[in-house]
Design a protein around this nucleic acid. Structure first.
Lengths: 345, 345
DNA sequence: TTGTACGCGTTATCAA
DNA sequence: TTGATAACGCGTACAA
């Protein structure tokens, strides 16, 4: 257990004692005046405030934290910031945090157990008041470590419904249904699904929305339509998935997420397959880039920022001992230009 | 000046005093044993360490900070996290921070002066050891407030070369030259530029790289080729810019950044203009999405993560009183499929 | 209405 | 080699 650090001292600023000396009162009085305590004379309060301003006093929240035993800090653990989905989660979460006087410690795990351990340890040492686990992969080792910290924690986009920690998720089954129903409406009957096995639980949900909707439409599901490419990233998944889909003779593809869909789009471009004339494609997430690609991608929108906001509200709720329940937000279909009637060649 | 907060206490964990009591030594000894101070008997050191482990002791870095007057925390102020460029800056910066035992406070200003003020105030109260200002727009009010804090600060992607604060930038002039030279090489002679006036300084640099390169090629520059659309965001800039470029009879466009380029690409799609057959396009940045669009975008790559890493190394350097100089990193041309010989219609 | 004294958890100084 | 004590900056019982 290493605790040592470089020992250089850095800051050296005005404290309430300095103000007290100048004002000719005790530091207690200054402390009270600053917090607008009604017991202090308006006179001295005024004087203290003016002095504080003139002397450039800035409260030391480290000292406040030590005393109050709370830091007004939330740790957010993400696998990577450089992910369009995570990015919006954070934007939403940070908005609420800032409003409520909280700060966010941002840490990335990069799927590296050592880093994960390190981050959890850091969160403990720094006494964060709460933790948001963003899109944790199932089987994260750090979860166990985090259980140990008795700190409010919420799961964002984990799909794991866990009795010990509340979670914010989207209706993945319903969202997938939206996508497939849309394709059915355009006349498609042979619809493929390209999944992502590293997001196991979410993948299962979206897949089940897909199968359910096909069944309800009375369509005999061909197992070769369901593809879970053996790949490490979404880019490869799209590329591999497209090949297999084509082999399965599908007229439309519903993809686990936009990144896969966009990769499919890209592969189509390279193979000279025109979308949506020859193949229709629907994604999931509605990341910013979905509307930029050619053709603009029809997709299922997740309210990403709203999810981030909700997760933050939930941790803050837990911190204030409020009752907090799992949240499941709705998706919405965004029609753009990657879907057309099936090619009748 | 409001300082009041909710007053609920949260944590309550093992301290060195608790360990001391159990070990039958003073808390000083425990403190030393934990830091592997050579003055303590290997015997007691061992015993203390074992106890610390058993009792689940986690050092309180708040208390450490109060004492040491440093927090091992860096404040990063960004206008928005939901920006593909910023995202990579952060990924890079966070990597270094984590390696060196620092944490990042992430705060967004969203171009709102009130928020900016709030963030700066927060950074001061929380006694961050340093600040990274990410892609600050010129004229940020907060700069003045930040000057007041006597805390190491570095500017990332600001293009402002400022004597008081070191900056990390990319060679914008050289990068633009790369792009234009590439278009010249393919035979283009009428090349447009779509700029972004809200990034004033960077815009000027890229524009100057553009003009310089054209001049060196002995091309008479037509002022109508240079377009600075009156718009608030890059999407609109692309749309408006394309119209004006077309009117100017240009065969290729160099765009201030990828977002504009992609918007141009998108507008072309809608107008039935095929890229690169009828119009060549080059962007700047090489954001992830640049390789996903159709056609994949030829662009000038900024080493975004490297810039983030460099900025972080620089603040940490400043904190440790090292000599730190401005850094200018090189760009690199990434050839993809949005450039072809000029259309000879 | 104001001030004194103590505690928050840790490190540093000085004495034993 | 170890320990008592003070200090970091702030908040708060309790006393005046």
């Amino acid at each position: 257990m290493c605790i040592g650090y470089s020992t250089t001292k850095l800051q050296s600023v005005i404290t309430i004692k300095d103000i007290a000396k100048v004002a000719g009162v005790s530091h207690t009085t200054v402390s009270r005046a600053l917090r607008a305590d009604s017991r202090i004379t308006p006179d001295t309060t005024e004087r203290v405030l003016r002095l504080a301003d003139e002397m450039g006093y800035v409260p030391n929240s480290i000292a406040q934290s030590l005393n109050a035993k709370r830091t007004y800090t939330i740790g957010m653990l993400v696998t990577s910031v450089a992910d369009p989905v995570v990015m919006d989660f954070m934007e939403g979460a940070e908005g609420i945090a800032q409003e409520r006087g909280y700060c966010i410690f941002l840490s990335t795990s990069r799927n590296d157990p050592a880093r994960e351990f390190n981050v959890v340890d850091t969160f403990q040492r720094r006494r964060v008041d709460g933790v948001i686990l963003v899109a944790p992969r199932t089987g994260d080792k750090c979860r166990l470590a985090l259980e140990r910290i008795q700190v409010p924690m919420v799961l964002l986009d984990s799909e794991e419904v866990n009795d010990t920690h509340p979670a914010v998720n989207v209706d993945n089954v319903g969202g997938a249904s939206l996508a497939v129903a849309h394709l059915l409406q355009w006349g498609h009957r042979r619809i493929g699904y390209i999944g992502a096995t590293d997001r196991r639980l979410t993948n299962v949900k979206r897949l089940s929305g897909y199968t359910k909707t096909l069944e309800q439409a009375g369509i005999q599901l061909d197992p070769t339509w369901i593809i879970n490419p053996e790949a490490d990233d979404d880019l490869q998944r799209g590329r591999l998935g497209l090949g297999q889909c084509l082999a399965a003779g599908v007229t439309a593809i519903f993809c686990y997420n936009d990144q896969i869909a966009i990769s499919v789009l890209n592969s189509c471009y390279h193979k000279g397959i025109s979308v949506p004339q020859q193949l229709s494609i629907v994604g999931f997430d509605d990341i910013r880039l979905a509307s930029y690609v050619n053709p603009p991608l029809t997709t299922v929108r997740q309210p990403l920022q709203e999810m981030g906001r909700t997760a933050m509200k939930m941790v803050l709720g837990l911190i204030d001992k409020a009752q907090v329940k799992n949240e499941m937000l709705d998706c919405e279909l965004v029609e753009r230009a990657s879907v057309a009637p099936p090619c009748t060649v």
